[in-house]
């Protein structure tokens, strides 16, 4: 696909609030991205006009019930068949923060057997409890399956901010080991919280900012075309967004989050 043919849909509903900066990242890469309200899309029925779908961060519908739950149900109820086809055709779906919560609630992630009827994981209330906004380090774990991190070396440590109250990735206790093994077997594990020296957090706060199981910050589905993460790559796009860019030397023009969007665009460019 030629770059100018790519059309990214950044979906939003009431309470979505990271759509503009997410669009800005695609704008910067010279890719057309449109912010579309779910209701508008339902009215037009045009999901399949887009090459990629992004669920950005925010507090969709106030995050009542559980974070992302209402948006997930709203999307499935109205767009189930289009969404299934969208996914089956290998069109990328990205969920950031609240968007990750939506993908898990909608059964798109981890999606061991395709889209599941019930969520197979959860993004539970942070431990320690409360909203927490801070920069974290994550280690890239994918061996190449995840299309959103194709341009990133395995083992590389990236720096991005988190800002959420419900980001503790969990599997059902009795299936924890089984599911974790499947994540590894399928190369679905993408980002894990670590320190700046690439040592895993092992659950220790604040290196792991929410108590996530196995320090999981982001996973993809078995095909690598659906990806969700708690940190915000769109807030770690430009060098001046870094929390300490004033520290000596020249300010970098970009920072780590850019590679997520670049990988995505690169994949679309190569896709027929």
């Amino acid at each position: 696909m030629k770059k100018k043919e790519i059309r990214v849909c950044i979906m939003r509903v009431g309470g979505t609030n990271c759509d503009a900066e997410t669009k800005r990242a695609f704008d910067d890469l010279g890719v057309k991205a449109e912010i579309v309200h779910l209701n508008e899309m339902v009215k037009k029925g045009n999901l399949l006009d887009y090459s990629a779908l992004v669920f950005p961060g925010g507090f969709s519908y106030g995050d009542y019930v559980r974070a992302g739950a209402i948006w997930a149900k709203g999307t499935l109820t109205n767009l189930r068949y289009d969404l299934r086809r969208f996914v089956e055709e290998g069109r990328p779906v990205l969920g950031i923060c609240n968007g990750f919560q939506v993908l898990v609630e909608a059964g798109l992630l981890p999606g061991f057997e395709g889209i599941s009827e019930y969520p197979e994981a959860a993004l539970a209330t942070n431990v320690p409890i409360g909203y927490h906004c801070n920069w974290v380090y994550v280690k890239h774990e994918s061996s190449g399956q995840c299309l959103f991190t194709k341009e990133i070396q395995k083992g590389k440590v990236l720096r991005m901010p988190v800002a959420h109250a419900e980001g503790r990735f969990l599997f059902p206790k009795e299936k924890e080991n089984d599911y974790l093994k499947r994540l590894y077997d399928n190369d679905q594990l993408v980002f894990r919280y670590c320190d700046e020296n690439s040592e895993y957090a092992n659950g220790a706060y604040p290196i792991n900012p929410n108590g996530a199981f196995h320090d999981i910050a982001g996973i993809c589905d078995p095909t690598g075309t659906i990806f969700g993460l708690m940190p915000h790559p769109e807030r770690a796009y430009y060098g001046w967004q870094l929390p300490d860019w004033t520290k000596g030397g020249r300010m970098p023009k970009y920072c780590d989050g850019k590679s997520v969007f670049e990988s995505m665009v690169e994949y679309l460019r190569k896709k027929s």
Binding site: C18, R24, G57, G130, Y131, H132, H232, P243
Partner: peptide
């Protein structure tokens, strides 16, 4: 840290440095 001071991605100099 209980407040989001990064959303919109435009905070150049943050309250905590």
């Amino acid at each position: 840290r209980a407040y989001d001071h990064e959303v919109k991605g435009n905070t150049v100099l943050k309250p905590l440095h």
